[in-house]
Design a protein around this nucleic acid. Structure first.
Lengths: 251, 251
DNA sequence: CGTGAAGTTGAGTATGCTCAACGGTGGTGG
DNA sequence: CCACCACCGTTGAGCATACTCAACTTCACG
């Protein structure tokens, strides 16, 4: 990591200044379509400096918890580097991963002043964090920022609903195909290749995200591989060979 | 419905002026605990009048669509009377209901300027609606309102994650028990009885909400009835007889 | 009172889970 | 540096939960 720098420090600032990106879906299936939260706000460099003034950094190691469900919500985070998983647990240990987070993503939106889920680093990672107390004043000063947060929350809500559709109504095969396509889209958004995917999370995590089991995920990927839909060029890597077929499978 | 009246017209205004309500969960299980979005904003009656000026009413009949997934998002709604269901469909017709809405609830938060889900009236219903275009100016003038919307969105996000846990990791029995408890809490919040529930939606809708089938919902309720956990005092009514047992079952 | 939708119950079955074994990989400590 | 160990991933076999199909009852509404 370079030292704090005005061009990289504030993902929140970046999010505000970022122009909407147009990505044309390569096929019409719903799992492939990408929705972008448009951003129309802008900040003067003075404003930007103000935002930087309340940001601090935090590094976490692979496997480390960022916060735990029920903790008092003190910070809002943005991911700078690495991958995170958010999850909720049942008393007997069953786990539902509610989302994976990549650089540029926010986490920490709280309900009733406590975190509604736990957040764990999937890889070594770095974040910027903003103390909610200090953000209050900032949001009053920059109303556009609050609007931006609302846009982000709305976007996450739409994603959550899409995931409910997957969890409640899709078969195991459809779930895995949907996951691959969604993951590919996210990779493309981050400027990585859309076809050769680096998958940082374990099969177990994927299963807990899709509401299925490690064995089923593994079997399904093997079948896709056998059918020529994907290949595994390296470890933790999946190459998408037949996107259209995966789209058809994902419904 | 009485004619438009400043004390009832604006659920949005109500939401802003509403004081946080304290409800002590009668037992400690997570399905029973209620989270409340606190509201600290207030408006002068002048401001309130301004809000009213952009609100209009809409009545819908049972079964009627309010909007459909993919429609350009023109209005934000608040429910005044009746019940709604939000849902998403797969191409082959499989349906996932992502939530039920009752008086006081918002609907219409959009992603990418289109509705992310369809909304249908479960009963005859009435709403107030606010044109997004006009709300822009209003939000600029009343930043607290944007904050309020953000709080609401965060709350909905937490609920969506809870539902993902249910859909992905709970058994059919746990799902139905969780539904009954959550429904009872919502009824209590609306000032209705917590033990005798009026269930306006069909078994089919409940099944599509819980990611299961009508038959399974029906069988599970019959078993609960047989085991003395609930009873059916009337049509579309369920009485909760043993809340603690339901809590234990729901995990 | 008739009709269609909603709800209930039963029987059989399939999808996907559980349990189990084994090979591979990466991290750690002797 | 290498050996060990724990975790991850893969594959197989058997089984259980919940789905499908079906029949029948009840209810709402004209």
């Amino acid at each position: 990591m370079p030292p704090l720098d005005i061009s990289t420090i504030s993902q929140l600032g970046d999010a505000i200044r970022r122009e909407p990106r147009q990505i044309i879906p390569s096929s019409p299936c719903s799992a492939c379509s990408v929705r972008h939260a448009a951003s129309y706000a802008s900040l003067t460099s003075d404003d930007h400096a103000h935002i930087l003034s309340i940001a601090s950094t935090r590094d976490v190691n692979r496997g480390q918890m960022l916060f735990i469900e029920g903790d008092p919500a003190e910070f809002l985070y943005t991911v700078v580097r690495g991958t995170f998983q958010m999850y909720k647990l049942l008393p007997d240990g069953r786990r539902q991963i509610t989302g994976f987070l990549f650089p540029g993503d926010f986490l920490g939106l709280a309900d009733d002043d406590v975190y509604a889920y736990s957040a764990e680093a999937v890889t070594d990672a770095a974040l910027y964090r903003y103390r909610f107390k200090e953000m209050g004043a900032l949001l009053t000063r920059y109303p556009k920022m609050e609007n931006r947060l609302l846009t982000i929350a709305s976007h996450e809500l739409a994603e959550a609903q899409e995931q409910m559709l997957l969890l409640g109504r899709k078969t195991a095969t459809e779930k895995v195909a949907s996951f691959l396509l969604a993951f590919a889209e996210r990779a493309a958004q981050r400027g990585e290749g859309r076809d050769v995917l680096f998958i940082p999370m374990t099969r177990h995590a994927i299963a807990d995200y899709l509401g299925t089991t490690t064995e089923t995920v593994s079997r399904t990927l093997s079948r896709f591989r056998h059918d020529g839909l994907i290949s595994s060029p390296g470890n933790n890597q999946i190459e998408i060979l037949d996107r259209d077929a995966l789209c058809r499978i994902s419904e």
